[in-house]
Design a binder for these strands. Structure first.
Lengths: 115, 115
DNA sequence: TGCGAATGTAACCAAATGGTTATTTAATTA
DNA sequence: TAATTAAATAACCATTTGGTTACATTCGCA
C-alpha cells in the first residue's frame, strides 16, 4: 500500500483471482463462502484478496448474521478509465474523429435538455 | 510474468515510476539516459523498469549508435480500457443513456460513410 | 448453554519485486 | 588502438505477495 491511489488500484487489479471476484460481484452481492466456491484456493487466501480489494475501495462489506457480504464499488475503476483514456490517441487512429463525435454528443445532449 | 496478459499489464502499470516513464514517452521517443534523468533511482533500476514495460508490449526499443531509444506502444492499454469499460455502468449513472448515444454515433458514422 | 457454520487472524513459507553497487558490453571518437 | 560514453548484466538484499495450516471469533439455533 503506497500513498499512490492509482498504483494501489492497478496492483489490486493485477491478480486474476481478484478480477474474477469483481466480475462475480458485478452480478450482485455475495458472501465470502459463495465467492470462494469457484476457486480452488483456501478461505484465508480469499479473505486476503478481499482485504486488498477493500483497502483500495473496490468493494465494501456489510453484516448479516455471520455473513459479511461483499459489494462491488466501481469508483476506483473510474480513475483507471480516466487514466487510460489519456492514451487513447496512441492506439486509436480515429481518436480525433471520435473526439469530434464526443463534442457533437455534448451539443446534442444540451439540445435534449433544452427541449 | 504469468500466462495472463491482462494481469501482467496491470502489474506493469502498478508502479508510479513506470507510469511516469510512459507519460514521458507519450511526448516522443527517449533514450534510457534521457528517460532516467528526472528520477533519483539508479540506471539499472530504470533498465529493469524498461524490461517490464517491454515484456508486456508497452514499449519497443530500437538502436541508434550506443543509444537504445524507447517508444510507447499503447496497444496493451487498449485491452485495459476494454476491460474497465465493462464496469462503466457501475459508476456511471448515465451509462444507459451514454450507451444510446454510442449506438446513435454508429448510425451517424455509417451515414457518413455512405455519403 | 453450547454446537456448528461462516469468517477472520496468526504464523509461517517460497517466490517475486524493486532497489543497490560493481562489472561488462558495445559504440563513438580522439 | 585507447579512452569515453550508454546501457545491460550480475550478484546481492530487504520487502511484499500469495499461498498454506492451525486456531480464534462471532453469530444463529437446537
Amino acid at each position: 500500500m503506497t500513498t499512490d491511489c492509482l498504483s494501489d488500484t492497478f496492483s489490486a487489479l493485477a491478480d486474476p483471482t481478484r478480477r474474477a471476484i469483481l466480475a462475480r460481484l458485478a452480478l450482485g452481492e455475495l458472501s465470502v463462502g459463495e465467492l470462494a466456491r469457484p476457486f480452488k484456493i483456501s478461505g484465508p487466501a480469499i479473505t486476503k484478496h478481499l482485504k486488498v480489494l477493500q483497502r483500495v475501495g473496490l468493494i465494501t462489506r456489510s453484516r448479516h448474521a455471520q455473513w459479511r457480504p461483499c459489494r462491488l464499488e466501481a469508483k476506483p475503476l473510474q480513475e483507471v478509465a480516466a487514466w487510460v483514456e489519456e492514451y487513447r490517441r496512441y492506439w486509436d487512429e480515429s481518436f480525433d474523429r471520435l473526439d469530434d463525435y464526443l463534442a457533437e454528443l455534448q451539443k446534442k445532449e444540451k439540445h435534449e435538455h433544452n427541449r
